[in-house]
């Protein structure tokens, strides 16, 4: 089905489709997302959403790429959907209306990359904590920047109970 799928997607959705390491990939415009997802789920049988994530191409415009993986339990077939999102309006449509599992994964993606999902009513932090500033998987987030919740002990006091330091 794989090779056929690429042609089918090309024709059916009017998008660019190709095989990447054996997995079909389509790249769509952000506005096409609801229509593409409707066709994929209701007509082509991609009934399971596996993942929502993003890629930060720092220095490129548009900066972000949001990536979804869907799976067809009928055909045992995976498919990757990508769309480009600019930094100044990093917002795409939420898929919670189609796939319930999107809710948590979109929360995580919002945590890590700051992508907002229109239609997801609950974008509270899920892996991060309340009060965390910034989005740690963005390439311009300083990897040594810590945001501790507990004030650190006086370092001069460390090891006073007899530890090796």
């Amino acid at each position: 089905m794989r090779d056929g799928l690429v042609e089918l997607l090309d024709g059916r959705l009017g998008t660019t489709a190709w095989l990447s390491h054996g997995m079909p990939v389509i790249e769509i415009g952000a506005g096409q997302l609801p229509e593409v997802v409707r066709v994929l789920r209701d007509e082509l049988g991609f009934d399971m959403l596996l993942d929502v994530t993003a890629v930060d191409w720092l220095g490129r415009t548009p900066r972000f790429e949001v990536v979804w993986h869907v799976f067809s339990t009928r055909d045992c077939q995976r498919l990757r959907i990508k769309t480009r999102v600019p930094e100044e309006a990093s917002e795409v449509d939420s898929l919670v209306g189609w796939y319930g599992s999107a809710a948590f994964m979109e929360r995580e993606c919002h945590d890590m990359f700051g992508i907002r999902f229109r239609g997801n009513a609950d974008l509270r932090p899920i892996l991060l904590y309340e009060g965390f500033v910034g989005h740690p998987l963005r390439k311009d987030y300083d990897k040594h920047h810590e945001q501790p919740l507990v004030p650190y002990r006086d370092t001069a006091d460390r090891g006073t109970q007899g530890g090796p330091r």
Binding site: Y152, R158, G159, T160, Q161, G163
Partner: peptide, 10 residues
């Protein structure tokens, strides 16, 4: 963890 609590043995 010694940034938060005292540690006796590492």
């Amino acid at each position: 963890i010694d940034k938060v609590i005292p540690v006796d043995i590492y």
